[in-house]
Amino acid sequence: MKKLFILLFFYLIATSYGPPNCTLFEGDCQKACHMAEQAIQYGQGSKRSQQFFDRSIELCPTFDYSYYEKSVPYAKRGDIVEWKKLIDKAVELEPTEHLANRGWYHFFFLNNYEGAIADIEKLDSLRDYDIGATGDAIYHLNILRAICYDEIGQLDKALGIMESQMNDSTHFVSLYDYICLGVLYLKSEQYDKAVIAFEKQEKENDLAENHFYKAKAYLKLNRISEAKQELKIADEYYKRNRQMENGYRELPFEIYQIDIANALAELN
């Protein structure tokens, strides 16, 4: 399963950064597409790359890919005003292509949960097939939507979306899905279901987090010795850097050393 995920990850990285097939365009828009191909040969956000995107847009002002790709480094580097101008233009031109990215970034760079939900749901209303995953393939957009609903205090709705997605036979289980599911069960006081979800996470991608939250569930079930054991595993894993990670930001339900230390201290 994990090997498949890695292949999907590389596929998405490769396809999300590349422009569309330029032979599908004609005239200046085909030239604009080739200009975008030049742009991505330079480092993302570099002067030359941005200049090539400018020329691409100048040649074909309806070539949405160049607005989108030019916008990305602004979001990654904290210039949200500039990112928004460009991504809005991309969404205006091709909503089904770029709503997913704008929604994901609302969440990812701003913790704007309402903005993320609105874009994902708008995309869902426009597509009659699967809405897909975030650009880094970490979350299916319905799982991201569930996380956002939980963040704005709508736990029941979040859990409903999460269960529905996880029960979908076409769902591709990703790196942290069962941690998300388990934590939502934990929050809704369904501790037995939470334990089962963390056990599934253990089989998919065994991390400090699933053991940490499993300990929390065991505590609620008054299974104290098992809780202690799980926390010890979480502690060991964390010290070996076996935890949720992302180079850009903290992920939902990510834990830290102090969380484990505090939980252990409470038990001793």
Binding site: Q41, S46, K47, Q51, D54, P73, G78
Partner: peptide, 20 residues
Amino acid sequence: NPPSKEENTKEEKEYRRTVG
């Protein structure tokens, strides 16, 4: 590692070495 092939046909916007 930028590629060597470049085109300079249009007046270019002011950018720093890289965004940000």
